[in-house]
Design a protein around this nucleic acid. Sequence first.
RNA 1: GCAGGCGUGAUCUAGCUGGUUAGGAUAAGGGCCUUCCAAGCCCUUUGCCCGGGUUCGAAUCCCGGCGCCUGCACCA
Length: 561
Amino acid sequence: MWEKVLAMAKRRGFIWPAFDIYGGMRGFYDYGPLGAELKKNILKIWRDYYVVQEGMAEIDSPNLSPEDVFRASGHLDKFEDYMTVCEKCGSAFRADKLLNIEHADSLSADELWEEMQKEKIKCPECGGPLSKPEPFNLMFKTRIGPKGKRERVGYLRPETAQAMFMDFSYLYRYFREKLPFGAVQIGKGFRNEISPRQGLLRLREFNMAEAEVFFDPENKSWPGFDRYADDEILLLPNTGGEMRISLGKAVKKGIIKNEALAYFIGLTRDFLLKIGIDEGKLRFREHLEDEMAHYADDCWDAEVLLSYGWVEIVGIADRTDYDLKRHMEFSGERLVAMRRYDEPKEIERLEAVPDFKKLGPLFKKDAKKVAEALKSMDPSALKGAVKVKVDGKEYEVPESAYTVKKVKKKVSGEEFIPHVIEPSYGIDRILYAVLEHNYNEIEEEGETYRILSLPPSVAPIKVAVFPLMPKDGLDSMALDIYRDLLRMGFRAVYDDSGSIGRRYARMDEIGTPYCITVDYQSLEDGTVTIRMRDTKEQVRLKIHELPEKLKEMGMSGGMRG
RNA sequence: GCAGGCGUGAUCUAGCUGGUUAGGAUAAGGGCCUUCCAAGCCCUUUGCCCGGGUUCGAAUCCCGGCGCCUGCACCA
């Protein structure tokens, strides 16, 4: 099946292998004119959901990031594997997985090699000797800046999410310090896949649309949840089994852990159906514990049934406060939100007050740090001489250098690190799924007709205009209509070559929902026929009624819907 | 990354035990014809994945690379 879809996609200009004249490069594809248009339409609808309806803020950040970012995000460690190859049968393995010790995944190449020799590890397949482990990081590494001192190591981002975390404080202020709010980004991600395959399903450079929804972990209810609460969805929870259940019930029964997650499952389903994913081939599957990404606490994938099997196209992950916490730790910046009380509270609490007259002479340069360490300790536990640790050194602070006092303070709220729900969409996979789910072949009189039943809103070409014959003034009339439609912002084509049936067939194959034909009656009464792709049904109407009719049939003009 | 299979115009394919100008179908462009679903006729365009070797001669045999497919491994 995918061969047929990909052959059509290649022939008609949806998808082309990239760098083809140089032999191609696996894991890289070009979108041809129709594919680029289709992608644009899918993203437009995605934005309608996330940016327009949900009011999320769209940002746009660099593809290339300095190393620090991925040190914090965990991708540098968790994304790097050491591979060892059997010198006899050629099988490749992750070195750390072959060892019988704990935390083998944190060892260096040399340590792994040492350990492998100690344990006398042989190839699990054939018993042959294994090579020294070689690092393999899924991120593309490069250098930023001129060679020399100024040079920094950079990586192409493996996901777009990090920017939303790094910009958290800006976003929080932008949203006037109110949660929940969401930020989205549409962009490219890069992963140096070991063995990309299966067309658009595993690319090395891919398009993704991600939303990071920040909310208070104490309140995982979701404002508009009612909208999707009654939607019946096919769920596969990680406790096993398969069920069709409404989202409201799933939350009540604890199958989906909170409303926020469930809401975005509902929204994702709504979006996918809108762009033409087949409902009967859609399900939501919860990740198994050991399947989860290093940052995720829970994750539901939207999976679609393709000729390759069930394929993940959207991941909806509960990233908790993992990312903000890590960036706080690595950058030293405070990435927190405020939970405001209804009224400011006056609270009384114990506080350690250091006496710098004493601390100064005692600890010199480190005095300030000692004081800070002292303040961060539990004041009720402070008694007598206290030991504090500063930069690995231990100091003893005498009782006379500080006092513990009761202090009254006005507090208008408390700080906390927001949690994040992340719906992450693989646009290329989604686009392919839309093609495959809408691709139909009909055998008629020994000939194969192909119809791409795309929803009008995503179809790359919205309408075609044909003269029945390219003569007798039919052609000039059709050209006028075509130009008017273009001016009104419709994606239209004009075609007068070959027989009319051939032209319809061409349009059917690329999913054009409507064809307008100018015939001899048109010359007499100013009417044309409009033909529906899926039913081949024709309706006759006045030319001036066309724009209204086209809009009514569920498609938007390019300019404004 | 390993193993196996495969690679002929835009698409599908014949030729592949070496031997003329690599054949067909579809598509595409032009023309004729044609009053609504890939009709017909004429003309035209595009090809042996890349590189090396063996040979008088390679699409064909051998080696290497690249790509595609399947399996294994990998897929935060």
